[in-house]
Lab assay of single mutants.
Amino acid sequence: MEVRTIKVFTTVDNINLHTQVVDMSMTYGQQFGPTYLDGADVTKIKPHNSHEGKTFYVLPNDDTLRVEAFEYYHTTDPSFLGRYMSALNHTKKWKYPQVNGLTSIKWADNNCYLATALLTLQQIELKFNPPALQDAYYRARAGEAANFCALILAYCNKTVGELGDVRETMSYLFQHANLDSCKRVLNVVCKTCGQQQTTLKGVEAVMYMGTLSYEQFKKGVQIPCTCGKQATKYLVQQESPFVMMSAPPAQYELKHGTFTCASEYTGNYQCGHYKHITSKETLYCIDGALLTKSSEYKGPITDVFYKENSYTTTIK
């Protein structure tokens, strides 16, 4: 009895394709271990004539594949690729409408935090270190965002349907971005203890939790000093293409032309909904596939993004 075979390709990165001759009487799992086709788990399936010449994702289970996976995804987590594939199996079914010149995501599976993050990423200057993220990001900007969303979920250790947080998501993504040249110098002034300067680099240099107003941050924000008295913390120097200011959701007025974009969060910790506000020729609110415009805006804002380049204080 002759062994019926077909020729397929296996890959971990969709760049390096490895030619395989597979036995049609055995499952993919018996031949390769966990195997995925377009995100779908085909591990328990036997090869079919229609699979001839198709590319299958496999887990990096030998040295060659491990090197290829690390170079593309910059992670050695053995569960990463499987999590990416199972997320992709959902995100490829989502709709990605162009809204006001940006790629958004039609609401499904509690994905409003991903839509808000995706919209924000198209408006701030950011370059990702893992080629996987950078490639998928370019495709997302062009309207094909399924891979990018699935990668975000995998890097953030999230599953489809789980509630997510924009600030946490951005923080994970910033860790995989090139923020080497970003720098922030802060000064804390206390009447009792004097003053202390701190220099922050990388992710810490672009994120701040405690106030939404970048102007206020430049002037000074009140913080408790270690001595128990009130101290003032203010920005001395900022070198970065953008800054992200966050605070627990509270009524906040966004003035046209003073910011790049913002995240609105309605609801409580267990259950809520994100919308995205962007400042173009007027203010726009993007909620999944829905767009509304207004000249002014007041609502429960939790993150505001500002364009920056270089700032030095005039406070002496």
Rank of each mutant, 00 (worst) to 15 (best):
Y297H: 06
I124N: 06
A132H: 01
S181G: 13
T199S: 09
N147R: 10
A136T: 08
W107Q: 04
N268C: 08
E144Q: 11
I124F: 06
L65T: 12
Q238G: 01
A145F: 02
P248E: 08
K183N: 03
M26W: 01
A132M: 00
S104W: 07
F70P: 04
Q197G: 06
P78I: 09
I15Y: 05
K158L: 06
E144L: 08
E239P: 03
T10E: 05
A205S: 08
E2N: 12
A145G: 10
S181C: 12
C193A: 00
E296A: 14
D23T: 15
F32I: 14
M245Y: 09
T192S: 15
A108H: 00
D303K: 00
A146D: 08
L200T: 09
L173S: 03
R167H: 05
Y297C: 00
Y284G: 04
Q31M: 13
L291H: 14
T302A: 03
N268V: 00
T11I: 15
A87F: 05
R141S: 10
E204Q: 14
L200S: 10
E239N: 07
A289S: 10
Q98T: 10
Q216D: 15
H273R: 00
H18Y: 06
D13K: 00
K255W: 06
Y138I: 15
A132G: 09
G228E: 01
C182I: 02
V206N: 00
L126E: 03
K7P: 11
K233A: 14
S50P: 12
T198I: 14
T27P: 11
F70V: 10
T64N: 13
G210W: 07
N268F: 00
A231N: 03
M24G: 08
P224D: 13
N49Q: 15
C227F: 03
V243L: 05
V185Y: 03
F9M: 12
Y172P: 05
D62K: 09
M24C: 13
A154M: 07
P249H: 02
V58E: 05
I301E: 02
Y172E: 01
L133H: 06
A177M: 03
D180K: 13
V243N: 01
Y172S: 14
Q123C: 03
Y36W: 12
T116D: 09
D13I: 00
Y274D: 00
Q134W: 03
M207V: 06
A146V: 06
R167A: 02
W107F: 10
A250I: 11
V99M: 13
T302L: 05
G228W: 03
G194E: 06
E253G: 00
K127C: 10
G288I: 02
A142W: 10
G39N: 09
T159D: 13
R4D: 10
C261L: 00
A250Q: 15
R139Q: 15
E253L: 08
I105A: 01
V8L: 10
T5G: 12
T35W: 00
I6E: 02
T103Q: 08
Q238D: 01
Y252R: 03
Y252N: 01
V12T: 09
Y137F: 13
S295R: 12
L212M: 02
E264M: 04
Y284V: 10
V185S: 05
F56V: 10
V221L: 12
T75H: 04
F217K: 01
S246P: 02
Q122S: 06
F128T: 04
S246D: 07
I6K: 07
Q222R: 10
N14W: 09
N178G: 01
Q196P: 03
V185P: 03
G272W: 01
T10L: 13
Q251R: 10
K54P: 03
P131R: 09
L291D: 00
S213V: 01
P78N: 09
T226W: 09
V203C: 10
K44I: 15
L254Y: 00
L65H: 08
T260N: 00
Y137M: 15
I45D: 15
G288A: 08
F80W: 07
L290F: 13
P34T: 13
